[in-house]
């Protein structure tokens, strides 16, 4: 009867922690979306907005046009990617913190549009979006994205990203078309974010403008920093740890909101001060 029991335990576990596991999957996808942009040395705070664009696109398609779910997912990724490409060419000329501010401003404009447009449902959000997303779909998408990242890293594109991150001027001097590769990184990131946003919208029945504001954008950055941005599974580790943190703290008897938030900030501070390559550097000896 042991297999039965195990099965029972899994069912129980999933019943209690199912939504947490799903959120970990979605947040991991979102964290990877920013990782792609960071791997080319570009700090974007617009990825939460791209997730929003994807969520709204897919939600509108399935709600109003009865488009099949899988088609809506592709459409969401393409929509976010297309907007990122149009946005990327002018915006990516900006460096460092100015790029961050510009993408932040873009995110705010998207959020304000979502509040004011009719088709996005205004401030109350778009609902009821059919619940089509299941755990296996999220984790299939995550596995495929992770595989894609691993392949990308060893490809010509991945090396170009890395060289731009290390020294953009030198990369340009080596004949790398930096504008094109930066836009490519930005676009791939936006497509992954759009996909994650679409899956999230079909998981929660609803998408609201408040979900992808400044705090969400910063949260994605925190996932990446805490996990580490040198390898693709760093952001996943960061997203998993920090998404599960409230539950972990509950295990220690901590339920107060401010304490949870404070621990979140404290972990981030400790990582940036003492582990600049993130928590993954604790496990790997590969200094890259």
């Amino acid at each position: 009867m042991i297999p039965m029991d195990l099965n029972h335990i899994f069912t129980q576990f999933y019943a209690v922690y199912g939504s947490l596991i799903n959120f970990i999957g979605i947040n991991s996808l979102l964290a990877i979306s920013l990782y792609v942009t960071l791997s080319a040395g570009q700090l974007s705070l617009g990825n939460a907005a791209f997730a929003g664009i994807g969520g709204y696109t897919a939600g509108i398609l399935t709600m109003y046009l009865n488009v099949p779910y899988i088609v809506a997912l592709f459409a969401a990724a393409l929509m976010s990617g297309a907007i990122a490409m149009i946005l990327g060419f002018p915006v990516l000329r900006l460096r460092g913190v100015f790029l961050a501010i510009a993408t932040l401003a873009f995110g705010e404009v998207v959020r304000i549009l979502a509040i004011n447009l009719q088709i996005t449902g205004g401030a109350e959000g778009l609902t009821p979006i059919p619940d089509k997303t299941q755990a296996w779909m999220i984790f299939t998408a995550l596995a495929l994205t992770g595989y894609f990242m691993a392949v990308l890293r060893r490809s010509r594109i991945g090396w170009s990203f890395a060289s731009i991150r290390e020294d953009e001027t030198a990369a340009k001097a080596m004949g790398i078309n930096t504008t094109w590769y930066k836009t490519l990184a930005f676009t791939i990131g936006a497509m992954i974010a759009g996909l994650a946003g679409a899956m999230s919208a079909h998981l929660n029945y609803i998408i609201t403008p408040g979900e992808f504001g400044f705090s969400a954008a910063v949260q994605l950055l925190i996932f990446n920093i805490v996990g580490g941005t040198r390898v693709w599974y760093g952001p996943i580790l960061g997203a998993a740890l920090l998404t599960a943190l409230p539950e972990i703290l509950r295990g220690f008897g901590v339920t107060a909101g401010p304490v949870r938030m404070g621990v979140n900030g404290f972990i981030l501070l400790m990582v940036i001060l003492f582990l600049p390559n993130g928590l993954v550097s604790l496990f790997s000896h590969n200094k890259d």
Partner: peptide, 24 residues
């Protein structure tokens, strides 16, 4: 070497700690 970027992050971290202290 990446002091601009890491300074941005550490100030975000401190902002979170301050804000949670304010709520607490």
């Amino acid at each position: 070497p990446d002091t601009y970027f890491s300074g941005l992050i550490s100030s975000i971290a401190l902002a979170i700690v301050f804000e949670s202290a304010a709520i607490g």
